[in-house]
Design a protein around this nucleic acid. Structure first.
Length: 588
RNA sequence: CGGGGUGUAGCUUAGCCUGGUAGAGCGCCUGGUUUGGGACCAGGAGGUCGCAGGUUCGAAUCCUGUCGCCCCGACCA
């Protein structure tokens, strides 16, 4: 048991000015964290206890699923990353940690980086240690601090530069085995979030810079989330918007026949979809072709969309470029022959088509059939442009952003959208890393093969905040039993009375005997202060010992999540508290 | 990186437009009265107004720069 007067729980009446959302305000007001700088937080004693609870539950579920815990360095030699497949993309988010301390050396490549994730460390390790199919599969995990130079840290622990993460890496001999490992992790994640008492749903996700073949994110539904989840409850379809698709283009759609000869027309000053929609041209957005120019690994490539559609940039990841970005106007003109606003992909109209890495068309342009696009000549567009006859296309793909209301790819029912906090992510990686690092094994036919990998992450510190975001009211936090920093709070309203403190110790012993951790509020504060603080820090079960109750021969028992107060006779108090603790513990 | 906002005591902030001794509430310290939902009275400590320049007789206030923090965006040609 801990005594509040000797512990350290600095609560605040008012929210700090830099906190916007409820969970961030409560983290600070309840004394769980304090900020050092942007995206950097100290876990205060109470916050640390919660973090340790979540960590331990995570560890148990990972071990139950066959995970083996280890701990890798936070400081990584830059060579590991330079050898890996994503140095160019990952270095932007990595902090460098050079050994040069005098500040006199010229800027150059970093010697060390602070680890944002550990594929580049675990894969060489496994390459060195495992060479036989007999030693596979293996799944290693750690729970440790990660460093990422987020462009914009925000919302407290929600997006921090330094945060706690569980990361796991599976190595299998076969693709089937890797899929099995993947599903074992998915089940472990579900068990983990269930034990925490938070709702987290698995949604299909983009693999991003991580690469790999398929992936799920675990999302806690919350308005303040960073991600849009596209879903339909009935069919069970759920995907991150970055990945989501719809049945907008019917599978049996026939390509439109040409509607007439190509025709150039003057559009002076018209450089936007909207301007072309307006009089005198009046070409609807869904009758226009939009041509975007990107740079992929240094070479330009084109993306064609309907004028009314938006690019979902993350989907360009499927094209295989390590890094890509929108091209600048200076890069566009020499290739296309015109400035942005007059671009198109009609065969023969691109000034220097051989410079392109490809022309990638969204499926939905087939719905246009015949439409209008830029002529690659400033101030001119072309009409009667037929997708099949006229457009130069390397390949078709899914590049557009799905909108709510479009038909669900599973059932055809309208899709909905809601915000979510990404608390976990699992990837089937395949052999991307094992091939680069040479992590191979020998099978029973003496043949060598690259191991098939998966990687898995849970944002532990972010999850803590998601728990608060999901469990609070106007008065404060409402901790689920499993993650509460203490399960029982004993409010001693008159701590100067020896019999009150004796009773508190006795009840604490009873609660501890039943498996709870107990905090005793023995501060010389007025009752109102204690009750307000109790609600704020959100301990699930509160026992109140007051002079009034002692005269009556009772104590009070109150659940943080409920309004009602139960009076218990002193003679039965021990047993009642123990029973309440056991019941809550069994449910958690 | 672009845009917007903001920086005054440990916290929340007023004052800035219109330059003239820096104010309040919470918290903290002392004493007293209180004691079942953030008490009251009296007294007290605590601020080079983010930092650096500039304008001025005089700058928290006006100007320039810089740094931190917060929010939005970072793609639509």
């Amino acid at each position: 048991m801990k005594f509040w007067s000797q512990y350290f729980i600095p609560t605040l009446k008012e929210s700090p000015a830099d906190a916007e959302i409820a969970s961030h305000k409560l983290l600070i007001r309840a004394g769980l964290v304090r900020k050092l700088g942007g995206g950097l937080y100290t876990y205060m004693p109470l916050g640390l206890r919660v973090m340790q609870k979540v960590t331990q539950i995570c560890r148990e579920e990972m071990e139950r699923a066959g995970g083996i815990e280890l701990q890798m360095p936070h400081l990584h030699p830059a060579e590991n990353w330079q050898q890996g497949p994503r140095w160019a993309a990952a270095r932007e988010i990595m902090f460098r940690a050079d050994s040069a301390g005098d500040g006199k050396r010229a800027p150059r490549e970093p010697e060390y980086v602070l680890g944002p994730t550990h594929e580049e460390v675990i894969t060489p390790l496994v390459k060195a240690e495992i060479t036989s199919y007999r030693d596979l599969p293996k799944n290693f995990f750690q729970i440790a601090t990660k460093f990422r130079n987020e462009i914009r840290p925000r919302f407290g622990l929600m997006r921090a530069r330094e945060f706690i993460m569980m990361d796991a890496y599976s190595f299998d001999a076969t693709d089937d085995g890797a899929i099995k490992s993947y599903h074992a992790m998915k089940a472990a994640y579900e068990a983990f979030f269930r034990r925490l008492g938070v709702t987290a749903i698995a949604v299909e996700a983009d693999t991003g810079v991580m690469g790999g073949s398929f992936s799920h994110e675990f999302m806690v539904p919350a308005e303040i989330g960073d991600d849009d989840v596209i879903y339909n409850e009935e069919s069970g379809y759920a995907a991150n918007r970055e990945k989501a698709t719809s049945a907008l283009v019917p599978a049996d759609l026939k390509d439109a026949a040409p509607a007439g000869a190509l025709e150039e027309f003057a559009t002076p000053g018209v450089v936007t979809i909207a301007a072309l929609e307006a009089a005198p041209f009046s070409v609807r957005g869904d009758q226009q072709f939009k041509t975007l120019v990107y740079m992929g690994d240094g070479k330009p490539f084109l993306v064609i969309l309907r004028g009314s559609d938006e690019l979902e940039e993350a989907k360009l990841g499927s094209l295989g470029f390590t890094v890509f970005r929108p091209a600048t106007a200076e890069e566009i003109e020499p290739v296309m022959g015109a400035k942005p606003g007059s671009l198109g992909t009609v065969k023969g109209s691109i000034k220097n088509q051989s410079a392109l890495a490809g022309i990638f068309a969204d499926h939905a342009i087939r719905l246009v059939g015949n439409g209008v696009t830029g002529a690659n000549k400033d101030g001119f567009h072309l009409r009667n442009v037929n997708v099949v006859r006229d457009l130069a296309v390397t390949s078709f793909g899914d590049f557009r952003r799905v909108r709510p209301g479009e038909p669900d790819p599973k059932s055809g029912q309208p899709l909905k959208v809601r915000r979510g906090i990404e608390v976990g992510h699992i990837f089937k990686l395949g052999t991307k890393y094992s091939e680069v690092f040479g992590a191979t094994y020998t099978d029973d036919q003496k043949q060598n093969h690259p191991m098939v990998m998966g990687c898995y992450g849970i944002g532990i510190s972010r999850t803590v905040q998601a728990v608060i975001e999901q469990g609070h009211d106007a008065d404060g936090i409402i901790w689920p039993w499993a993650v509460a920093p203490f399960q029982v709070l004993i409010c001693v309203l008159d701590p100067q009375l020896p019999e009150a403190m004796d009773l508190a110790r006795k009840l604490a012993a009873a609660a501890e005997g039943a498996g709870a951790e107990v905090l005793i509020d023995d501060r010389a504060e007025r009752p109102g202060v204690k009750f307000k603080d109790a609600d704020l820090i959100g301990i699930p079960l509160r026992l109140t010992i007051g002079g009034k109750g002692l005269k009556e021969g009772i104590i009070e028992l109150k659940w943080r999540a409920r309004k009602d107060v139960v009076k218990v006779a002193l003679a039965e108090a021990d047993a009642a508290v123990a029973a309440a603790v056991r019941e809550a513990g069994a449910k958690a």
